[in-house]
Computed example of a mutant assay.
Amino acid sequence: MKALSAVLLPAALLAIALLSLPTNARAGGLVECNNCVSPRDAALPSGAGLTVVMDFERARLTAFNVEYDREFRKWRALPTPVPNQIQMAFLRILDGTSAFAKERNHASPNAGGGTVVTLHPDNPGNSNGVNFPDSYKSSTTFDIVNSATMRTRLGQYLATELAGANTGSPTWNGIALSIQQAALNWSSMKGGGSITIIITWRDGSKTLYRITPENVGEAKYQNGESRDGTGNMVPDESIADPITAPSYAGEYYFGREGDLDRWARSAQMYGVPVQRGDSSRMSCSWDGRTVYCRQY
Rank of each mutant, 00 (worst) to 15 (best):
R262L: 15
R40P: 06
A59H: 11
K220F: 13
N110E: 13
C36Q: 07
L61M: 02
A99N: 03
V31G: 10
Y253A: 15
P170W: 06
L94D: 01
A111Q: 05
P109G: 12
L19Y: 07
C284N: 03
L208D: 13
I16R: 09
P81Y: 08
A240C: 07
G193C: 03
L91P: 01
P246N: 10
S188D: 12
N84A: 15
M88Y: 15
N146C: 09
V272F: 06
E57F: 07
L8I: 14
L78A: 06
S169T: 09
V216W: 06
D69T: 01
T171L: 14
T115N: 05
D278S: 11
N128G: 00
G217T: 08
K2A: 13
L177T: 14
P81R: 07
T97N: 03
A11P: 02
D278G: 06
V234R: 01
G191P: 04
Q85I: 14
I93F: 11
P273C: 11
V291G: 03
A101F: 01
T152C: 08
S38K: 03
G288R: 04
D69Y: 01
W172K: 08
A3I: 13
S20Q: 12
Y252P: 01
R227P: 00
L78G: 01
G168N: 13
Y248F: 14
L50T: 10
Y248K: 03
D287V: 04
C33M: 13
S135H: 13
A219M: 06
D278H: 07
I199T: 02
R73D: 14
R76S: 07
M282N: 01
I195R: 06
D122R: 00
P109M: 12
V117H: 01
F132T: 00
A89C: 10
G129V: 00
P22G: 02
Q85P: 12
V130C: 00
V7N: 05
T171S: 13
Q85L: 14
M88Q: 15
K102W: 02
Q268E: 15
T51M: 08
S285A: 12
L14I: 11
D278Y: 07
Y209V: 02
P242N: 04
T152P: 04
A163I: 02
F254A: 06
F142L: 02
G258T: 10
E67W: 06
A59P: 02
Q275P: 03
N123Q: 07
M54W: 04
A59L: 08
G168W: 14
I243F: 12
G258K: 10
D236T: 11
E237R: 15
G271L: 12
V272E: 07
G96K: 04
C36V: 09
P235F: 11
C36L: 10
